[in-house]
């Protein structure tokens, strides 16, 4: 029982990180109709920048957090402007392939800018252990779950009530009509890339806090992928929750079936999900007109 609860809690924590990155996928998909295959790499770069800030500028939590979020926003804006904007209006296949090319470039760039060795991100907190009813939980694990829930609520409110959020939904539903209503699709896209990069970046920093930074971190993107598919590519909230589900499944599979199963549990799950409900649990079925 103790073992099960332990697995569930660490599953929730890693799931929350997947959830954050999955929300990054969904924000971009929702407003631009693209799957951003470079999401994991963008997450990794944000985490590395956070590490650089913590070692060179200051190890203060707030400095690192604000610096990392700003860096993630800038990264998202730069990528959108330089790489994605010129591809506007091209077929989806071409644009998605561009994100794959971008992913490969960013992944190698890590090895040039930083190095290939693992680093620990230490900002003096997150690794302490709190005892909750006899079960040891890391403070970082609690923090990441809380952050995910907070962001889920914030994003729900943003899409529901704010003018910009409604505009983003409008662009996603029909960009031409949105354009005629006076919404700038390019600005909305830029905003989506910045927001996605920041949300996923937060997940990446939390991952670096609990585990270590290494150039293999881009796999976080691949792991978060099943979460987005599970929740629905166009469902931001669903993706967040999908992350929690994937995290728990993965940990249970790893705990009871062996470590090999842990690696592929998420992927096995998306194949099943895609067969049964290709648009995800919370996604909308897209109807094709002939």
């Amino acid at each position: 029982m103790q073992y099960l609860i332990q697995l569930l809690i660490s599953g929730l924590a890693i799931g929350a990180m997947y959830g954050l990155i999955a929300m990054g996928f969904a924000v971009i998909y929702k407003s631009t109709g693209l799957v951003n295959f470079a999401q994991g790499e963008m997450t990794m770069i944000t985490a590395y920048i956070a590490w650089t800030i913590s070692t060179t500028v200051s190890g203060n939590v707030f400095v690192v957090a604000i610096g990392a979020i700003l860096a993630a926003v800038v990264l998202g804006l730069v990528i959108e402007r330089l790489v994605m904007r010129p591809m506007l209006g091209e077929p989806v296949f071409a644009t998605v392939m561009v994100t794959i090319g971008l992913a490969v470039i960013l992944r190698s760039a890590i090895n040039f800018i930083w190095d290939a060795y693992p680093h620990g991100l230490d900002i003096g907190m997150g690794r302490g252990i709190v005892h909750l009813g006899g079960i040891g939980v890391r403070t970082g694990q609690i923090a990441v779950i809380a952050t995910l829930l907070l962001l889920l609520a914030a994003i729900w409110a943003f899409f529901r009530y704010s003018k910009v959020g409604v505009a983003m939904r409008a662009v996603a539903a029909d960009d031409r009509t949105a354009l005629l209503m006076g919404i700038s699709a390019t600005k909305v896209h830029a905003l989506a890339w910045a927001a996605s990069s920041a949300i996923a970046g937060i997940g990446g920093v939390f991952f670096a806090l609990s585990y270590d930074l290494s150039p293999a971190m881009f796999q976080l993107g691949l792991k978060a992928f099943p979460a987005t598919i599970l929740g629905g590519l166009d469902a931001v909230l669903g993706s967040g929750l999908g992350g929690l589900l994937i995290g728990i499944t993965e940990n249970l599979a790893g705990g009871y079936l062996g470590s090999g199963m842990k690696e592929v549990a998420g992927f096995a799950m998306i194949i099943v999900v895609l067969m049964v409900r290709p648009f995800g649990i919370f996604g909308e079925r897209d109807i094709e007109r002939v």
């Binding site: 989806v92 998605v96 691949l222 992928f225 690696e263 592929v264 992927f267 998306i270 895609l274 290709p278």
Partner: peptide
Amino acid sequence: APSLRLKGLYLAITTLAFSFIINTVILE
């Protein structure tokens, strides 16, 4: 066979998942 229901991106994702699963199968 499962990919027959899927198109475009979703198919790409399934094949991606396959390539990771096959590696684990071989290792196991």
